[in-house]
Design a protein around this nucleic acid. Structure first.
Length: 296
DNA sequence: GACCAGGAAACGA
DNA sequence: TCGTTTCATGGT
């Protein structure tokens, strides 16, 4: 028996694969039925069991709150989905098709950095940049498999010590100065990420928007995926397209009108609505492309 | 080889 | 306050 610890976390309405592949996190790998990742500097392997998620770590754990907090296993998903607008057939269909899709609770710096890197990048590319950064500049962590080498995502201090040239070598292009500036501000305390949790949604968003390279969309991703702001509703190209299609008959709408509609229509768990719409439309596209490929 | 990617900032009208 | 351009790089 290897060192380390195993725990079985009981869950209901939890689709781990959908959650880990829905564009919230970029550092999880799937290998023969198990997911491995690094949470707060700890390597962990997750397997889906009957009514539970079974977690294995490399080192012994006496307290697993870091894991349940990340996975948000205490969240009552049925209650959240029940809060969705009752008359919205499109949203209801997405929620049915993606049953068990969850929002995670990531560490703010890692989430902020990843989404600064996400600007006009495909998810596979974001994953590649995050992996390069971690391998080159992150702290190695003990893993539960002898052949697996993993690294924590570099801290703000670690990235702040780098140069723009080193960052550009990780294939992030014009995003390099944005990441470097954000890392420096966090490292010296000019940007207090921990303090954002005590603010209102609008106040916390305003703080994030002070950062160069962080606009409304990236700010809302961080507020939704790393904080307790389930009303945050990031609008990217996918979500904008699907909103125009479902609710505006494909007519052009200004950003201001779109935001007004979102706030009025989706309610207190708008961010969950957004995640279901985003994941569902991406899954649908994959299916259509699969058929086209199968034909030829 | 054109087109697009979980955008944002700078610019010109 | 608008729309347009630019930024870097890789996938499809």
């Amino acid at each position: 028996m290897r060192p380390g610890t195993t725990i079985s976390v009981p869950v209901t309405d939890y689709d781990l694969s959908a959650t880990l592949t829905s564009g919230q996190v970029f550092n999880w790998e799937q290998n023969d039925g198990a997911w491995t990742g690094v949470i707060h500097g700890r390597w962990v392997e997750l397997r889906v069991a009957d009514g539970a998620i079974v977690a294995r770590t490399a080192t012994s754990q006496r307290n697993w709150s870091w894991l349940t907090h990340f996975l948000q296993t205490d969240v009552n998903l049925a209650e959240i989905v029940a809060s969705f607008p009752a008359t919205d057939a499109h949203l209801r269909a997405a929620a049915r098709a993606c049953h068990g899709l969850r929002l995670l609770r990531q560490s703010p710096w890692e989430c902020l950095a990843a989404f600064i890197l996400s600007a006009t990048k495909q998810i596979v590319q974001i994953r590649q940049i995050v992996r390069l950064l971690s391998e080159r500049y992150g702290t190695p962590v003990a893993t539960g498999d002898a052949e697996e080498r993993r690294f924590a995502f570099p801290s703000a201090e670690q990235i702040a010590a780098l140069t723009e040239v080193e960052l550009r070598a990780c294939k992030m292009g014009f995003r390099a100065p944005y990441l470097l500036q954000a890392a420096r501000q966090v490292a010296v305390g000019k940007m207090d990420l921990a303090g954002l949790e005590r603010l209102s949604l609008a106040e916390a968003r305003a703080q994030l928007l002070r950062l160069d390279g962080v606009g409304r969309k990236i700010a809302d991703c961080v507020l939704l995926f790393a904080y307790d702001f389930p009303e945050a509703f990031p609008v990217d190209v996918w979500v904008r397209r699907v909103l125009l299609k479902y609710y505006f008959r494909n007519r052009q709408v200004s950003d201001a009108r779109l935001q007004q509609f979102i706030q009025r229509h989706f309610g207190r768990n708008a961010g969950y609505c957004q995640q279901y719409l985003f994941h569902h439309v991406r899954m649908m596209k994959g299916r259509v492309e699969g058929r086209l490929i199968a034909k030829t």
